[in-house]
Design a protein around this nucleic acid. Sequence first.
DNA 1: TGACAAACGGGGGACCACCCCGTTTAGTCT
DNA 2: AGACTAAACGGGGTGGTCCCCCGTTTGTCA
Lengths: 186, 186
Amino acid sequence: MPDTRPMRADARRNYERLLAAAVAEVARTGADASLEKIARDAGVGSATLHRHFPTRQALLEAVFHDRVEGLCAEAHELTGSAEPGRALADWLRAVAVYGATTRGLAASLLASVREPVAASDTGCEAMLTDAGGKLLRSAQDAGAVRPGVAIGDLLTMANAVSLTTEDGAEAARLVTLAIEGIHPRP
Amino acid sequence: MPDTRPMRADARRNYERLLAAAVAEVARTGADASLEKIARDAGVGSATLHRHFPTRQALLEAVFHDRVEGLCAEAHELTGSAEPGRALADWLRAVAVYGATTRGLAASLLASVREPVAASDTGCEAMLTDAGGKLLRSAQDAGAVRPGVAIGDLLTMANAVSLTTEDGAEAARLVTLAIEGIHPRP
DNA sequence: TGACAAACGGGGGACCACCCCGTTTAGTCT
DNA sequence: AGACTAAACGGGGTGGTCCCCCGTTTGTCA
């Protein structure tokens, strides 16, 4: 990547102001927060917002990037746990709960699933797929999870649950239900 | 209910025009179709649309009402099947597939779950809960489904899946996954 | 310090939901 | 049949949104 010249000072400053305003506003209003208001709160023109974040999706990715990194770190910690099946389940619950409580993450992730991004992207979806994939493989190696279950499906399920509930406890319950299935335990 | 006077002829005519236009437009554009365009296509003023359907939610409920009745009829047929567990699974898949392919139904149903409507309502959610509840009870009586599984959770799951995929085959796959769980079959 | 590219932001166009209120019209009562 | 009334209508206004154009400012580097 040849032209990775550092950002101009004012550009970086505005970028950070916008991100801070966006974090606050998205937490308050959800994923369909008003971009105009975010720009106003940040004290910049709306054109500047659109220059830094060409799409709403790009803004949401930035807003949730830190937290997604946290979830990935958690996945790395859990990899190699003594109970890999439980570790996977716990992690999926954490993903769903975070998505449910922080309104908008789920919608953001889903959008990127539908409209896949470049391969070497650092998007939220790619990060979670990598981190969760390892966790899933451990669980499958230990015989706790059927082969044929894909991490993409599990993440989609967790996101789906997030989209529906916006309530952490219910999200956890639904993910547990999906993991256990509905049949009687043998 | 004392004043259930019949609708005036022009009101009913416009109601039907609006509904027809809405069905077409929602099928084309999804749940966030433009209300203005629907009114234009119906040949009525936008105020008339808002009078007949005070909220977008109300319009969507009307749009999907027929089809939801179809799903409920299907549930009634399946009740008393020889394999109640399979019947329930089939029905949930049908709900999810319909929601996934007919863009917007899922979002519509979810909204009504979050903001519960009056008890004796004929809303989509209530109809599906009734119909599916019977199916679930049969399956539980037959020992095919754990007690403690609630119809509300299953419908929420089906809707969640609908929201994520807009692709019938994938929706069916995800619902199956949630029904079976991720653990190895004994 | 000066030149120049990069970044800025006001303002405008196109769209939207929603509502006010003067006008039309369907149903009813004599 | 004709008149009356309340219900239904819809044009147009308000305030909001997203997105982009383009003249202006500002940081950076020689």
